[in-house]
């Protein structure tokens, strides 16, 4: 066993010879630029695009969450233009102003919205989806990684759920779950209403999202399996490892880097996954399957848009996910993975 584990470690370790030297000494800015310009040049395009389109609006949103800005009180003055000519501008009497942490207090104490119950639903939704995505995706990727007759046909068929635009399949699933005309009830011969209680509705939307998300995990893991050198498996076999031992000692460690990425990002994406719940259950019954992001949308984006409350939801979601990521990283570090 020990031989196997040791054999695994080297390829998963990137060499950082060049980099280590660079960081070991404190250098002036000029030498830093001289030494790192190519690395910086390689990341600059991404950084610029992300900074303009995501980071800047995000910082704006963090500021908005400390004010009482809505669509109605945002402008300093409201101008009423007349098509026949003429224009009347009046100062906005309740122009938005700084309110400190009021929005956070309102949301967290339940004066506005239902933060905590939506948070609970979000957790169930996220973890259920990610666990099924990953385990099913891993299983299928392992099956498809073997030499096998018709492998590329299976592969293409299995990625189809990813290839259909999500909102179309969401409508199709909604129809499948329909009480009166749905396929599931027809097959079961029942008149069960899938959406009249929260547990059932939540199960239904999770099934839809698992169906949608497995192909992505499967493809990513398939790519990861390819980077595990075959020699490791051979060495393991020679050592007399069982299939299960090979899986836990060669496959899983070899997939660690890919798995860490897709689980982390999968969690983040699922946490904020909007369209499925919005289309399939519409958050029903009576708000029972509302997750934070759909709740925020309903709360703040219907009618006069409440930018500050929306931003507050956003910042709270961001904080939860940062906390999760920090914990996740800590966990990975304990396992020996560094990033």
């Amino acid at each position: 066993m020990t031989t196997v584990t040791e054999a695994v470690t080297p390829p998963a370790r990137p060499s950082k010879g060049r980099g280590r030297r660079a960081s070991s000494s404190r250098t002036s800015l000029r030498t830093a630029v001289g030494r790192h310009w190519y690395a910086w040049a390689m990341v600059t395009p991404v950084v610029v695009v992300l900074a303009i389109l995501v980071l800047y609006p995000m910082v704006q949103a963090i500021w908005l969450s400390l004010t009482n800005t809505t669509e109605a009180n945002q402008a300093e003055q409201i101008c009423q233009l007349s098509l026949g000519g003429g224009q009347v501008c009046t100062p906005n009497p309740n122009h938005a102003h700084f309110v400190g942490l009021d929005n956070y207090v309102k949301l967290l104490t339940g004066q506005i919205g239902r933060f905590w119950s939506q948070f609970g639903i979000t957790l169930i939704w996220t973890f259920a989806c990610v666990i099924f995505h990953y385990t099913i995706g891993l299983g299928l990727a392992m099956l498809l990684n073997r030499p096998l007759r018709g492998r590329s046909v299976y592969r293409i068929v299995l990625i189809l759920p990813w290839a259909v635009p999500a909102f179309v399949s969401a409508f199709a699933w909604k129809f499948i779950f329909d009480r009166d005309a749905g396929l599931i009830n027809k097959l079961l011969g029942s008149t069960n209403d899938w959406f009249d209680s929260t547990p059932k509705a939540l199960t239904a939307v999770i099934i839809v999202n698992v169906w949608l998300g497995v192909p992505f995990m499967m493809v990513a893991i398939l790519g990861g399996l390819q980077s595990i050198p075959a020699e490791l498996y051979e060495a393991a076999s020679i050592d007399g490892a069982t299939a299960w031992q090979r899986f836990t000692n060669v496959t899983l460690p070899g997939l660690r880097s890919v798995s860490a990425t897709i689980i982390l990002l999968g969690t983040i994406w699922t946490f904020n996954m909007f369209p499925i719940i919005y289309i399939v259950s519409r958050g029903g019954p009576a708000g029972g399957t509302e997750i934070l992001v759909t709740g925020a949308f309903k709360e703040a984006f219907e009618g006069i848009r409440n930018y500050s409350i929306a931003a507050t939801y956003g910042v709270l979601i961001l904080s939860v996910l940062i906390a999760y990521s920090v914990g996740y990283r800590y966990f990975l570090r304990k396992q020996g993975e560094v990033w």
Binding site: E71, A72, A75, I78, C79, Q80, L81, S82, L83, G84, G85, G86, I304
Partner: peptide
């Protein structure tokens, strides 16, 4: 109208 996004049509 309350957001100032529309022309008032009264003079037309």
């Amino acid at each position: 109208a309350s957001l100032g996004y529309l022309y008032n049509l009264d003079d037309t």
